[in-house]
Simulated scan of single mutants.
Amino acid sequence: MPRHKLTTFERSLRQIIAQNLKQVSQGMTQNDLATKTGIPTSTLSGYFAQRSTPSPGNVQRIADALDCNKSAIDPRFNDAFLHSDACFQTVFVQLSTERQASVLKFAQAQLIEQNTQRQ
């Protein structure tokens, strides 16, 4: 049970990771994967069942064991995902109105600074 209520982003992330894990570990049991990674079967079971989110270290261990990129398991390691509108929007809509205004002001200031430095 999570210590806090999961955000839509966190639930989606767990779902994507679980789907990716099932795909990249086809033909392998969770016990086989535990043996190859050194990650307890109960921990892996949590990832597959969307009960927990793997740490970056465990994502690396799984990727190494399956000879794949971390981004094939966890979209947080995919630059395209992190720069997607969906990723930003998921976080932005959860902010209070005041914090949304702060984010917008900060982004506008950054854009002005960026454009000034180019000249």
Score class of each variant (00 low, 15 high):
A63H: 02
T43A: 10
G57Q: 11
Q23G: 05
S25F: 01
T35L: 14
D32Y: 02
T43Q: 07
N58M: 13
T35R: 10
D67K: 08
I62W: 13
A72D: 05
Y47K: 04
S25H: 06
G57P: 06
L66E: 08
D64H: 03
A34V: 06
Q30P: 01
F48H: 03
L21A: 11
G27R: 00
T41L: 15
Q19F: 06
P40N: 11
S42N: 13
F48Q: 05
P56V: 09
N20M: 01
N31M: 14
Q26P: 03
P56R: 10
V24E: 00
T53M: 03
S25W: 03
T37D: 03
T29F: 12
Q23M: 03
D67P: 08
S45V: 10
A49P: 07
K22I: 01
L66Q: 07
Q60N: 12
Y47F: 13
T53D: 03
L33P: 12
N69Y: 15
N69V: 14
S45M: 09
T53G: 02
Q19N: 12
T29Y: 08
T41V: 15
A65D: 07
K70A: 12
Q23W: 03
G38C: 07
S42R: 13
N20A: 06
A72V: 02
S45Q: 14
L21S: 14
F48D: 07
S52N: 12
S55Y: 05
T29G: 13
S45W: 08
S52C: 13
A18M: 00
S71D: 13
L66H: 04
T43Y: 00
V59F: 06
G38T: 04
S45T: 13
C68W: 02
A72C: 07
G38A: 04
N20C: 02
K36Y: 11
N31A: 15
S52Q: 13
K22R: 12
L44E: 08
S52R: 15
N69A: 15
Y47L: 03
R51K: 15
Q50Y: 09
Q30Y: 04
T53P: 02
K22N: 01
T43L: 04
Q19A: 09
K36R: 15
T29P: 14
Q50C: 13
I62S: 08
Q30F: 02
P40E: 11
